[in-house]
Structure formats: C-alpha cells, structure tokens
Simulated assay, not measured.
Amino acid sequence: MTPALAWERFATKAKPRRAVNAAGATTWLNWTQYPDHGPDESILGDLRGKRVLELGSGSGCNLAHLATLGARCTGVDIAPSREVAAEQRWGRVPELEFVTQDVADFLQESADDFDVVISIFGATWFTDPAVLLPLIRKRLAPGGVLVFSHNDEVDDDAQSDRAIRKWNFSGQQWAEMLFIAGFVSVSSEIIPPPKPELPGTLLVRGAAPR
C-alpha cells in the first residue's frame, strides 16, 4: 500500500472537528491532541500579512483559523479527500488554499517562500527529517519559523517498514537535526496532558537565519 492510499483510508475514518469549541469560537488552533488544551496561535506572533504553510493540513481547521487572523495560508496534504473536505468547509475564507500533494514534492517544486511553516501532528511526524527539514529550511524566508507538534512518547519502532511511518523523536534529537539542516534559535517543550496518565505533546520550534 502506498502512503497516499494509506492516508486516504485514514482520512475516511476521521471525525469532523466540532462547529464551536468550549469558548464558543468557530475557528481556533490546537497544538495538542486534546480539545481546548494547550497554547494557541499566539506563540507564532502577529500573523497579519504573513505567508503560512501547513504540512499535513487535514481538513484545514487549524489553518483556516490563521487565515481569519490575516495570514495568507496554504495547506498541503497527501490525501485527496482532505482537500475536498477542507474546501467544502473553508473554501469561502479569503487567502486560504489547499493542495493535494506529498509535502516533500510540494516543497521541492514550490517557488514561494513562507514566513511560518507549521505541522500539527502532521507531516513532520511522518516524513524522513533528513529529507524534509532541509526542504523546509530552503522555503523559509529570512527569520521565518517552523513550529510543529507530535506525541511526546519516543517511538523505538520509528523506522519500521510500514506504509505510514513515524519519526517520533525527543526534543533533543529534533534540535540536533534542525541545527544540521541550518535552523537557528531551536527550542522545544513538552506540553503536559490534561490528565497525568495521558501522553503529553512535544512542541518544537526552529527559525531560519535573518
């Protein structure tokens, strides 16, 4: 099974995001795997007029929120039904587009630079970082930032032979790989879960030199 087919099958089982969150908002960004938990988009700074790229944009809910804040947003996902679902729900939001493509291929072929690249339990978790991180770095504008999150449990089986593979590393491991790829101002933190018996969320940040 190809990765595209595997992700398409996964997408068909995904539940749509709620119409409103606990605060009554119709759009919002959530870095963790738990609803109404953890930091919001404010960690990205002022997004007005910024070019934002999301790798593994799914149904587009997180990215649509950033577009409502004035960002110019592009979402890339390998599963065709994700683009369809995102367009159906968010197609009327200005400065927001969705693309069906492997993220590495998109980054290789794109001529655009981005101020912010995000991936929330998305493609940075499921793409070989030796391939992906240098491609992201090349597409970041000077001073641009990459911020991504995934489950904080280190997976010793990350390189197993599966259609969908995880690169589930520690913050220190990601820092080393980001520095090698040319990023600066690298940092990471673990966002505690809402209940102690649950896994936390690793949040990683790196920047392009100015």
Rank of each mutant, 00 (worst) to 15 (best):
V93R: 01
L133K: 05
Q88M: 14
F106K: 02
N21F: 06
A158K: 09
L44F: 12
V52A: 10
P196N: 15
G56S: 07
G56D: 09
A181D: 09
P134E: 02
K166L: 01
I164H: 12
L178F: 08
N21D: 15
C61Q: 02
H150Q: 12
I190R: 15
H65G: 04
N168L: 12
G56V: 04
P142T: 05
T124D: 03
D102W: 00
R9P: 09
A130N: 12
L66V: 06
D157P: 04
A181T: 05
S42P: 14
S187G: 12
G182A: 04
S160N: 10
S187H: 11
F106Y: 12
G144P: 07
G200E: 11
L44V: 00
V116P: 02
Q88E: 14
R89G: 09
E153V: 13
G206N: 09
V147F: 12
P194L: 09
D161W: 11
A130R: 14
L107D: 01
D77Q: 05
I180W: 13
I43F: 07
N151W: 02
A85S: 15
M177R: 15
A67P: 03
V145W: 01
V76W: 00
L53E: 03
F179M: 05
L66S: 10
K195R: 09
W28Y: 10
P94D: 13
D102A: 08
L140E: 04
D46H: 13
V131H: 03
